[in-house]
C-alpha cells in the first residue's frame, strides 16, 4: 500500500463506520449536530494517531502475552491527556461530549488499529494509518451530524435556514439509529455502483 492509499482508504474502502462498523457508540451518541460530530472525530483521531505512533515504536519490546494490557495503558494515557487539554482549552465542548471522551479508551477502532496495523508496521506508516482511519471516522461522524442537524434542527454547523424546530426525533436517540441505518443503505448503494 502506498503512503497516499494509507491516508485515503479510511474514506470509502475501510471506512470505520459504514464498512467496518466500529466505534458505534460515539457515532450515534455525539452526532446531534455537525460541530459535535466533527469534534468527536478529531478527538478520536488525536488519540488514534498518537497511540499508533507509540505502539508501533514499543511493539518490538513488548512480550506477546501482555501486549493487550500495555496497549490499553498507552491508549488510556493519551485519552486522559486529551481530557485535560479539552477541559483546559475547550471546556464547553468537553461538557457537550462528556462521557464519550473517556470512553475513547474502549473505542474498538483505536485498539483495533493497534492490533491490526501499528504492531506490525513502522512508526511513519502507523502515523499515516492513524491519520487515514481518523479522517474516515471524522468524515462519517460529520456527515451523520450534518444530516441529523438538518433534519432535527433545520441548521448546518449552527447556521439556521428554517425557522422553527425541525423534526426533533432526529436529535434524540431514535433518530440517531434511523439516520445511521439509512445512510448506510445509501453508502451501500453508491459503493456497489462504483464497483
Amino acid at each position: 500500500m502506498s503512503k497516499l492509499q494509507l491516508i485515503t482508504k479510511g474514506f470509502i474502502k475501510d471506512n470505520p463506520t459504514f464498512v467496518l462498523l466500529l466505534g458505534m457508540c460515539p457515532t450515534l451518541a455525539t452526532t446531534t449536530s455537525a460541530v459535535n460530530g466533527l469534534s468527536m472525530g478529531l478527538a478520536t483521531m488525536f488519540v488514534l494517531v498518537l497511540s499508533n505512533i507509540v505502539i508501533s515504536a514499543i511493539a518490538p519490546v513488548v512480550p506477546d502475552k501482555v501486549h493487550i494490557p500495555v496497549y490499553i495503558v498507552v491508549i488510556a494515557t493519551f485519552v486522559t491527556v486529551l481530557q485535560f487539554f479539552m477541559q483546559a482549552y475547550t471546556p464547553a465542548m468537553y461538557e457537550t461530549l462528556g462521557l464519550f471522551i473517556p470512553l475513547i479508551v474502549v473505542n474498538c477502532i483505536v485498539l483495533g488499529r493497534a492490533e491490526a496495523f501499528a504492531n506490525k508496521n513502522g512508526v511513519l506508516d502507523s502515523a499515516l494509518d492513524g491519520i487515514g482511519v481518523g479522517l474516515g471516522f471524522t468524515c462519517s461522524l460529520t456527515v451523520l451530524g450534518i444530516v441529523r442537524e438538518i433534519l432535527g434542527s433545520g441548521s448546518v454547523f449552527g447556521l439556521k435556514f428554517i425557522s422553527g424546530d425541525g423534526i426533533l426525533a432526529f436529535v434524540m436517540a431514535p433518530g440517531a439509529f434511523l439516520a445511521l441505518g439509512y445512510l448506510m443503505v445509501l453508502f451501500n448503494k453508491i459503493t456497489k455502483k462504483n464497483k
Partner: peptide, 29 residues
Amino acid sequence: MAIKSNLKNMVIVLTAVCLICSSVLAGVY
C-alpha cells in the same frame, strides 16, 4: 514482531509502561 514472553520480561515491561504513563500523566496534569 513481539518477543517471546517470560515472567521476568512481562513484569518489567508492564511496570515500566505503567510508571512511564503515570509520570507522563502527572506531568500533563
